[in-house]
Each structure stands twice: as structure tokens, then as C-alpha cells.
């Protein structure tokens, strides 16, 4: 592992908020738009430091997104951040036509994402936006794994030209990368070497992927390659194809619906270049519910144990032959 050690816990939104200030210091054309919940998504740091470049638009995500487009078409690097349930759905048409069709330099910060927003319940648990956003031409989509990576990713999307989305969360999550951990937009990083199975994860599922790999090694001597696939789009086809060829089977893990997110993006690459058995860890076509983040992650099988189990299943399929027919009874039935 490259510089991967648990250093405690911290939120990814802190990384986003602090990076905006850094970007503001470096580039005087960075402007930020608030949608009322600026303290929650930590754009308030930027507001405090650069009040003349911060604009409150109120509870109006469609307007904020499109005003940001107007600013971007006037040469600004325009960030708009709110909860991803609103900043990447309510404004879907605006993202498609105003932001992406104009190829405007607009960055969306999607806060309080995923099931771990917790007690707020299903309305606020955005689990679908990656699927929508990665289908938009010109859009870049990044899902950082911890505070440090959120910081690097925010700066990276600020310094590239074009529409981009960064996803971050509400609750504290393990902090395990450092300033030295490599990060390049569009480049998946191998966090742990191995060739028996590849676990491709993003966001807060990267840490449990590393835990699952350690357990696999300890209990069964299985060497799992763990890939941190922070950039969902553009996807790093090279690293993923190499993993498919060298490991022969893949498990993906994400805090998002299994339809259309990281797992789908990886499958698109794998099916085309090097078809191997795959298993998908993620939300299984259902809404969440209120609860504490840890309770919810366990309830919906978004933990190291779920990755571990999927890994054993996919290795078994690999050993039985890649193209084996799976009887219909083997398709998991999802409980209501």
C-alpha cells in the first residue's frame, strides 16, 4: 500500500470547503454560489474569506445552476454546491442544456450524498446522481474517498476546464490518504497489489475494500488488488482492463445504486475489453431510511463484510469458468 494508514476520521465536506478557499486564493476568477445550506456544504469558508465573490441564490437550485452558467460564460470558474439530492436532480435539465451543452466551466459540489446522510431519511439520501451525471456529455464526475482526496479532487476540477461534479458526504469517514498519496483526475490508483481478485471502489467504500482485502489475506491467503476509482468519468480504462486481465474477476463497491454508477462504468470497460465475472456491492434498487450512518451501511450491505462475501462469490465464478451460465434462481431477489 502506498501511504495508506488510518489517521482517524474526518468529513469529505471539510476537504471541499477548504479547497475552495485555496482555489479562491490562487485564482481570482473563482466564484461560489450558495443555496441556503452553505454551512452544511462548507462553502461558508469561501464566503467568509471572499464575500465579494460569493453569491447567495437562496433555495433555488435551477436558478443557481444557470446563473453559474452565465458567470462561467463570462470567464469565471463557477462553483455551486448544495445537497446532491437537489444540486444534481432538481436542476437536471439545467445541467444538461445550460451547463453541459454550453460546455460551461461550472462545478457542482454534491454534499450530504449517499446513505450516510443518515437520519434525514430517503428524500435526502442521494443514491442515483452519478448514474445521471455520467450520462451527460462533457461532464466529469469525481467521488473522493476521504478528506485529503476531496481536497485534491476539488482543486483538480477547479483547475480543469469544463463541467464537473464532485460528490462528498456529511458524516466523518476514515482518513487514510496523505498529501503524498498520488491523485490524478481520470487515473485510478492501485491502493493494494494483488492478482486473485480486483476490488474497485470509490468514495467511502474504498476503506472497507481495504479492510476486506486484509481479511481475505488473513483468513484465506487471497491477494486482492484494491483500486481506488475516484474518477467515474472519464473512466480509467487502462487500469481497469489491466485488473480484469491480471486478476480475472472484479468486485465493485459504491455508496450508490448498483444501476448506472461506478459498477456499471467499470462493467462497460470490462465487457468491451476483457470480459470477466463481476459482482456489484451497492444499493440494490431501493430507497434508504432514517438511521445512523453505521446502522444504514450495515442494513444495506455497504460494508467490508459485503465486499468480502462478494469477493468469494466472484472468485468461485472465475474458478468455474468465465462464461458459465447462471441459472435464473441465482439472480438475487431484493427484499422490500
Amino acid at each position: 500500500m502506498k501511504n495508506i494508514n488510518l489517521q482517524g476520521k474526518k468529513t469529505t465536506r471539510h476537504g471541499f470547503g477548504e479547497a475552495l478557499v485555496e482555489l479562491g486564493e490562487k485564482h481570482d476568477n473563482v466564484v461560489v454560489f450558495g443555496g441556503d445550506i452553505t454551512g452544511s456544504v462548507m462553502t461558508s469558508f469561501f464566503q467568509k474569506k471572499f464575500p465579494e465573490r460569493f453569491f447567495s441564490i437562496g433555495i433555488a437550485e435551477q436558478n443557481a445552476t444557470t446563473i453559474a452558467t452565465g458567470m462561467a460564460l463570462s470567464g469565471k470558474i463557477a462553483f455551486f454546491s448544495s445537497y446532491s439530492a437537489f444540486a444534481a436532480f432538481r436542476n437536471a435539465d439545467q445541467l444538461r442544456v445550460s451547463v453541459c451543452y454550453n460546455n460551461a466551466n461550472v462545478k457542482i459540489g454534491g454534499g450530504h450524498s449517499g446513505i450516510t446522510v443518515g437520519p434525514d431519511g430517503a428524500t435526502h439520501q442521494s443514491l442515483e446522481e452519478v448514474s445521471f451525471l455520467r450520462a451527460l456529455p462533457n461532464m466529469t464526475v469525481v467521488v473522493p474517498c476521504d478528506y485529503n482526496e476531496a481536497k485534491k479532487a476539488t482543486i483538480a476540477i477547479g483547475e480543469m476546464y469544463g463541467p464537473a461534479y464532485i460528490r462528498f458526504g456529511r458524516s466523518s469517514v476514515p482518513l487514510f490518504t496523505t498529501d503524498e498519496t498520488p491523485f490524478t483526475l481520470g487515473k485510478a490508483e492501485v491502493f493494494r497489489e494483488g492478482a486473485d481478485v480486483a476490488i474497485v471502489a470509490c468514495g467511502l467504500m474504498v476503506w472497507p475494500a481495504l479492510l476486506a482485502a486484509e481479511e481475505l489475506k488473513k483468513n484465506l491467503g487471497i491477494e486482492a488488488r484494491v483500486i481506488n476509482n475516484h474518477t467515474i468519468k472519464p473512466i480509467d480504462g487502462e487500469t481497469l482492463t489491466k485488473a480484469a486481465v491480471e486478476c480475472g474477476c472484479i468486485v465493485t463497491a459504491e455508496e450508490h445504486q448498483v444501476y448506472g454508477g461506478l459498477g456499471s462504468a467499470v462493467a462497460e470497460v470490462v465487457v468491451k475489453n476483457a470480459p470477466v465475472p463481476m459482482e456489484f456491492v451497492g444499493m440494490k434498487d431501493r430507497f434508504g431510511t432514517s438511521g445512523e450512518p453505521e446502522e444504514l451501511l450495515e442494513k444495506f450491505d455497504l460494508n467490508w463484510q459485503a465486499i468480502y462475501a462478494s469477493t468469494l462469490k466472484v472468485i468461485e465464478r472465475k474458478n468455474n469458468g468465465n462464461c458459465e451460465y447462471r441459472p435464473l434462481t441465482d439472480i438475487p431477489k431484493y427484499e422490500k
Binding site: 466564484v31 445552476t65 458567470m71 469565471k76
Partner: peptide
């Protein structure tokens, strides 16, 4: 949508 884009442009000119 265009009217919000125009608002953004006018804000860039006047306020930034």
C-alpha cells in the same frame, strides 16, 4: 433557462 444565464452574465459584469 436563458434568462438565468443572462442574470449570471449581468452579475459577472456588475458585481465581479
Amino acid at each position: 433557462q436563458g434568462i438565468s444565464i443572462a442574470v449570471g452574465m449581468a452579475m459577472a459584469d456588475k458585481l465581479v
